[in-house]
Write a protein that binds this DNA or RNA. Structure first.
Length: 326
DNA sequence: GTTATTTGACCGTG
DNA sequence: CACGGTCAAATAAC
């Protein structure tokens, strides 16, 4: 295969992967209340597929490689993406598939791009669970908004190579294009890595319950539960039982009641506790002790999320006692 | 005084 | 040589 064809193949693969990635994000964000994000992602997805198709049809590459975001991105992959595209593309770009006439290339770092929407009233992308330190900002040619450069805040301590580039979308200012590079070699845990993953609680964690006074800081998106959803809770007596016939956790607002029982969870006896959630001791739902972990099942997650999303921002709620009745 | 951010300069890549 | 990514001194915030 000639160099040009190989390069085009890389671009096709990149565009297809990008399209898949964007579709995953669209699926994740799908919510009638977030039409702007969905619309934006739909445009990007169509663009990726159009480009790939034009290449497969033999259309020249001209014009495709001129614009930054559409240029070769060696790793358009989400954190949850199952495709090993970064490696595939990196290998191809550093071996026989090098672009013509270039031996000294800047080291390609696996990157993935995500599109995130700012919370209402804010002009910054929501926190992603990691600590970042800004190290630069640059006006990009032809771009309406500057690009901001961040690196892991623990870089100095542990040579962590993780970086993040944030740029506001030109077409949808509430949407940010966030490009992650490198990986966290610092051991830093993602504090709110909850998308696409059910909440995981150890049974030991389920021992806690109910808070005396709680303040919601924000309301997360439907379909996911952000860490801030969870109020501080006080511990129930260790004798609290979570067998199938008893109710152990009650989560309520003024209109609704959510009782968490064993049937709301999927037991995962052999998995280790989630290390990517960084709950503090006073963070909440802890349960009766044995070593197995619990995943909140989809139905229960939806119920709880709906309940939580029904809570206005910054309102306080008081939770008292533990419902032991069925 | 310490830590975080800003911003102009520098440098590698294409 | 233009551009984007990074560095590091200056500045701001705490």
């Amino acid at each position: 295969m000639g160099e040009k064809n190989c390069w085009e193949k890389v671009v096709v693969i990149t565009e297809l992967i990008m399209g898949r990635e964007l579709m995953l994000q669209l699926q994740k964000h799908f919510d009638p209340m977030k039409q702007d994000v969905c619309q934006y992602l739909a445009v990007e997805i169509l663009s990726s597929y159009d480009k790939a198709l034009s290449l497969l049809n033999g259309t020249a590459l001209s014009g495709m490689m001129s614009k930054g975001k559409q240029c070769f991105n060696p790793a358009p992959s989400s954190s949850t993406d199952k495709l090993q595209s970064p490696q595939l593309l990196a290998d191809c770009s550093t071996k026989s598939c090098d672009r013509p006439s270039n031996s000294r290339k800047r080291k390609k770092i696996a990157r993935r791009t995500e599109y995130v929407q700012a919370r209402t009233g804010e002009e910054v992308p929501p926190e992603d669970g990691y600590s970042w330190r800004k190290y630069g900002q640059k006006d990009i040619l032809g771009a309406k908004y500057p690009r901001e450069y961040y690196r892991c805040a623990r870089r100095g301590l542990s040579n962590c190579a993780a970086t993040k580039i944030v740029q506001k979308s030109e077409t949808e200012p509430s949407v940010f294009e966030v490009t992650y590079g490198g990986s966290h070699g610092c051991g830093q845990e993602n504090k709110n890595q909850n998308e696409e993953q059910p909440l995981v609680l150890t049974q030991e964690q389920l021992r806690v319950v109910l808070t005396e006074e709680t303040q919601y800081h924000e309301v997360g998106r439907a379909g996911e539960i952000s860490e801030s959803h969870f109020p501080k809770m006080v511990s129930t007596p260790n004798s609290t039982s979570f067998n199938n016939s008893s109710t152990g956790v009650v989560f309520s607002n003024s209109n609704s009641l959510f009782n968490i029982t064993n049937s709301d969870f999927i037991s995962t006896p052999t998995s280790s506790p989630r290390s990517d959630r960084n709950f503090s001791n006073d963070d909440f739902i802890y349960g009766p002790g044995n070593d197995s972990n619990l995943l909140l099942n989809d139905t229960s997650l939806t119920r709880l999320t709906a309940l939580l999303d029904d809570v206005p921002e910054n309102c306080s709620h008081t939770y008292r006692g533990v419902h032991q009745h069925p």
